[in-house]
Each structure stands twice: as C-alpha cells, then as structure tokens.
Write a protein that binds this DNA or RNA. Structure first.
Length: 396
RNA sequence: GGGGGGAUGCCCGAGUGGCCAAAGGGAGCGGUCUGUAAAAUCGCCGGCUCAGCCUACGGAGGUUCGAAUCCUCCUCCCCCCA
C-alpha cells in the first residue's frame, strides 16, 4: 500500500482523471487502483426527483464520460428508491416525497438525457430498487447497525439543522446509508458526485469495508455549477438552470444572462477543452452560448441561436417562426383573453397588467385598449413583453 | 405520557375584531438604460371583460352587524421534560 510503489504513469493518469475535481479521497487511492490495470467501476447515483437534466448535472456526467473514454465502466444508478427518501444534501429542509409513478417517469427521461453526455455502450444502468425493493426489516436493521447516529449527525447539513432546532427526518438520516449500500451492491471502485456529496461518498466507502465488499471506493467530487443567477447552485426548482434538451435559442439566451463573474467557471466546467474567456465579456458570452447550443443540438445550432437572439432580443424584431393563432369569431376581441390563449399568459389579469404597462404591441405599435377591432388584429403580430409573440390569423 | 410554541399569498415574514386582497423583504414580471451582465430607476405582482364583484390567512363548525384576528373540534409541524 505504499505510495512509492505506485507507478508514475498511474499517478499521472489519476491526476488527469481528477482534473477539475474538488476532492479525490483518499489521497493516492485512485492511482493505486489504476495501477491494477483493470477497468474500474465508476458509480454515479442520480435521484430522478426532477425529470430534466441541466448543465449542472453535466459537470459530473462529463467526468463520468472521461472515465468511460479511458476504458472504465460507468455504473449509472437511477435512485428510484432513494428518491422516495429525499437526499438532504445541501438542503436546509426536508424534501417532499415523490410518487412511484412520477419517479418512474423521471427516471426514464433522465436515462435518455444522460446519453447526450455518456457513451451508452459503456454505461451500466441500474436501479437501486433492484436491491431495496426486496429488503426485509432484518436486512434494514443489519444495514443500520453499521453506523451510529453520532456519525451521521456530524454531517454539516444535519449539524446546522440540529443547532437551529430545525427538523431532521428519520428518512433523511437513512439516506446516506442507502446510497452507501448502492456502492456495496455494485462494487464501485470510484463514486462521483458534487461537493455536497462528500459525506455520502465517504460513508459508502466505510460501508463497503464493513460489509465485506471486495473493493472500497474512491470519492471524487466535482464543483457544483452555479445557476444562471450566479448565486445559488443550478437547480430546476430554483429556476436558474439551462436544460440540455431546451431549444438552442433558450440555451443561448440563458447563457447570455449569466453574470460576467460566473462566466469563467462555466467555461472551466462545461467546455474544459475550449480556451477560456479572454476578450470582451459580451463576445465571450456569445461564444459560450454557441458552444452550449452546439453541444446539445449539433454544430450550427449555436450560430442559428445567436441569429435568433440578435433579431429578437437585440433588434426587438419578431422571429421568423412566430407561432400562428387563429382568431375566434368575436369582434371586437377582448385582448386579455386573446393573450392568454395565444401567448400562454397565466391569467387575464396578467395580460391586463402588461397592456397597462405598455408592454403589448401589434405589429410594433403599442396597444392601450382592452378591446380591439378584429380587423386590426387579423394578420398582425402580437407581442407581449420582450419575447412572447403570436401571428394572428382570421379563422373561417 | 406531560408542558410549551406554531401553521398567513411563489418563499420568508408582519398583522391579535372593522381603516386587510392582508405591512416589509426576496423571487418573478414589465418600462427606461444596457452587452437580455452588473448597477440604476419607475411600475406591477389572487381571480374576474376590473371605479365593482368573487375567492383567500392549515381544515370543519361557532360567536359577532363584522373574524387572518375570539371560541370549539380536527389535521399537521417544532421545542422541552419523561
């Protein structure tokens, strides 16, 4: 086990595989494993709590892909059972539980989207329901016998909540054990995760050792990608995310709205092969937006998205592909109702407000009236706010 | 088992009988500015074809001319003691 015996090539390879990571624990362990010259089993667990993958997920997925490209096996664990519990990591409060149906649907979507980053050929997909569904109470007790509450409470999320007298559910306490047991079952050599996962990953290592698993895993954690708000970590529920399946124009637009200070981190974590930003922030952000759109929608998508952006956002013009909306028989037309129908606004009141605030126009001419003659609407482009459009056409 | 505290709009949080569609903050949306960045600034922010009406302060009843505010029961949550 002495570090001296680890060959230099293995150390170099370990360094390369640990690029951009925050932790790679324990020190030297990855190199030792690589020195064994066998394909490592690299585990990544994802809880299908939200169906869509966003760029934050891709940071870790990309790392997993790098392991695949180096000849190792990716073990993607869909946490259909852990999702029922809710991971407390990085959370200040308990998560709501999801219904089995919801979980299944999410898992399916997630799996499909993960293949945008991973090499499906070298991905072993498992569901932890495989081993959790059939567990008896005796099994569960045996599992819990390996850790102490004190040990679990040392974890930061719990410690601060204890200090603040905020609730910690039993289920949450069990979560790290479940995740750790996954590692035992798939015999993971390496487990990847965000920095918030370090505790869970280390516990997995301990469980493996205590439960007689032939390997103990290396914990490799990646930085958490900050959201488009530049403040909180990217997450669907905070609405500060860029989804991998979003339309390229959306991705480009969202990339443009990222704070300047955050841009360098996006370059580093999302497009590590590209040179970082050195020019004018606006130009570099455009490049970033193009790279992101290209990556998930193919070459050329970025350029098209940028043109769309120029047209709609910079020049305040309607895009080429304005969706059509067929007018009803009313005359005059009640504009708020029309806006709800044609533009998907949440309520007539919202539409009414936009009109009052001068945010609504017909063919570029601001509208102030709530009721508009049908004749004036027919054939016109209705616009509300910066980027909601509909081309109105007369019905029959 | 005993005692105490709490549940308010997307989130946090004020409000303890009328002046409450409910302070304040955050988030969000819109206008101006701009690089859809930051900063600034003005406005909106329950629903309704809207000077009015309707629905709302955990749930169900009740007291009252009038209840987010008082009473009863219920549900859920937190803390302390055991």
């Amino acid at each position: 086990m002495s570090d001296q015996k680890t060959p230099a090539w293995a150390v170099a390879e370990a360094d390369a595989l640990a690029a951009r990571s925050v932790n790679c624990e324990p020190p030297g362990a990855l190199a030792e494993k690589l020195a064994e010259k066998r394909p490592l089993r690299v585990k990544l667990g994802v809880d299908p709590t939200a169906p869509d993958i966003h760029l934050g997920h891709t940071v870790v997925l990309q790392k997993l892909r790098e392991f695949q490209d180096a000849g190792h096996t990716a073990v993607l664990i869909i946490g259909d059972w852990t999702a029922r519990v809710g991971d407390p990591s990085g959370r200040s409060s308990t998560r709501p539980m999801l219904s089995p149906d919801e979980i299944d649907r999410n898992a399916e979507t997630f799996r499909r989207q993960a293949d945008l980053v991973l090499d499906p050929e070298r991905t072993e997909v498992r569901s932890n329901g495989e081993w959790f569904a059939g567990m008896t109470l005796a099994d569960v007790l045996a599992l819990t016998s390996h850790v102490t509450v004190n040990q679990l409470l040392r974890r930061n999320d719990f410690a601060t909540r204890m200090a603040d007298d905020r609730p910690i559910s039993m289920l949450e306490l069990v979560y790290p054990l479940m995740q750790g047991y996954d590692s035992v079952m798939v015999e993971a050599d390496v487990e990847l995760g965000g920095t918030d996962q370090l505790f869970n990953l280390m516990l997995g290592r301990e469980l493996q050792a205590r439960m007689g698993c032939p390997v103990t895993q290396v914990s490799l954690t990646m930085p958490l990608l900050v959201g488009t708000d530049g403040v909180q970590k990217m997450s669907k529920s905070l609405g500060n995310y860029i989804g991998v399946t979003e339309p390229p124009e959306e991705q480009f637009g969202k990339a443009m709205s990222v704070p300047d200070a955050t841009m360098a981190e996006y370059y580093r974590l999302l497009v590590p092969a590209e040179p970082g930003p050195t020019g004018h922030p606006a130009a570099e952000k455009r490049r970033l937006g193009r790279l992101i759109a290209d990556r998930f929608h193919g070459p050329g998508a970025g350029e098209a998205a940028e043109e769309h952006f120029n047209r709609v956002t910079r020049d305040h013009k309607a895009p080429d592909d304005v969706p059509e909306h067929v007018l009803g028989p009313d005359d005059p037309v009640h504009l708020p109702a029309l806006m709800v129908a044609a533009l998907g606004l949440p309520s007539n009141g919202e539409a009414r407000r936009l009109i009052q605030q001068g945010a609504v126009s017909l063919d570029g001419v601001p509208v102030a009236d709530l009721d508009v003659a049908r004749e004036r609407l027919s054939g016109a482009v209705l616009k509300a706010g910066k980027r909601r459009f509909a081309r109105l056409v007369a019905g029959d």
